[in-house]
């Protein structure tokens, strides 16, 4: 009797577990279906190549996706070198002392700081103290600070999977520490690091709050100056100093208007944004899989 009751409880908990998981999965499905239903009719070539407009039918996301792409370039250029260097130091060089412990606690804490706090810090420090203004450069740096802990943690985890005999073998033939890092550890950990970087960027691409806080504009009907120029020296960095908007801010702008026409635009922009995020996540999973298959310790 007792035994049967216990087994019944055991089985019903398995069902509860499946239901709890189903809650998450059904929400994801409902969200996708709801947004696809509202947004797909608005998706067209013109939607991608038009500027925002007062009329929902003629509005598009050109300035938003160009802005997102350029901001992500800055974010990657700033966060990757800094995060990888910090990860290498903490995993390969750092002595076990209070300073290292402080840095580690600090990184764990930074990963939990709400993103809007980064926005406030960037508003006070980058926009006003350093006089960078509300530009693509500022936005890229803000998001770089935000994803820095993710890049550091990913680099460390990738380095940790490399067996110690690789380091011992390099040391045994007289390689210096930096030579070991540069010629062995960095190339071998590339897959894991890259996965972490892409996941970090896919988080940054959807971040809205910190960019609103530093004062991104919500209505932009011009493009930043193109990075490629027809005349010498062909590359221009002038776009770093241009105003901008990004995909999630454009979506937020549309969803906070009362008209249904703009809500459809918001859904369509959301679909494009989700497409970007999911594509990046898919790429990360693919890279992890490829590198796992290639390396056998």
């Amino acid at each position: 009797m007792l035994l049967r009751r216990r087994k019944m409880w055991d089985a019903s908990f398995a069902i509860a577990g499946l239901l709890a998981l189903a809650c998450g999965l059904i929400t994801l499905l409902a969200l996708l279906v709801d947004m696809a239903g509202d947004g797909i009719p608005r998706l067209s070539w013109a939607f991608l190549t038009n500027f925002p407009s007062r009329l929902p039918e003629g509005a598009g996301i050109l300035s938003a996706w160009v802005g997102t792409t350029l901001v992500m370039l800055v974010t990657a250029a700033a966060a990757v070198p800094l995060g990888v260097a910090a990860g290498i130091y903490l995993e390969e060089y750092a002595p076990r002392n209070w300073l290292t412990a402080l840095i580690e606690i600090n990184i764990a804490n930074l990963a939990g700081v709400p993103s809007i706090i980064y926005g406030l810090m960037a508003l006070g420090l980058l926009v006003y103290r350093l006089q960078l203004g509300q530009r693509i450069l500022t936005a890229g740096l803000t998001l770089a600070l935000l994803i820095l802990p993710m890049v550091i943690i990913a680099t460390r985890e990738a380095l940790r999977t490399i067996p110690s005999y690789i380091r011992e073998a390099a040391a045994a033939i007289g390689a210096t520490k930096w030579q070991t890092v540069r010629d062995h550890l960095v190339p071998y950990s590339l897959g894991g690091t890259l996965t972490g970087v892409i996941l970090g960027l896919s988080r940054a691409i959807g971040e809205t709050a910190p960019l609103i806080t530093i004062g991104a504009l919500t209505f932009i009907a011009f493009l930043p100056q193109p990075p490629l120029q027809p005349t010498f020296p062909f590359l221009s960095l002038q776009w770093l100093w241009d105003g901008f908007t990004v995909m999630p801010i454009q979506m937020f702008n549309w969803v906070s208007r009362p008209q249904a026409g703009f809500h459809a635009n918001a859904a369509a922009a959301g679909l494009v944004l989700m497409g970007m995020t999911l594509a990046m996540n898919g790429l990360a999973i693919y890279i992890r899989y490829r590198f796992r298959k290639r390396i056998h310790w």
Partner: peptide
């Protein structure tokens, strides 16, 4: 199978969840 799908849920941009909360 389930864990990667659940992780996708956390990859959805928060403003998209805002849209979902308000309009669904």
């Amino acid at each position: 199978v389930v864990k990667p799908i659940l992780e996708l849920l956390s990859a959805v941009p928060t403003v998209v969840f805002g849209y979902f909360a308000l309009l669904f």
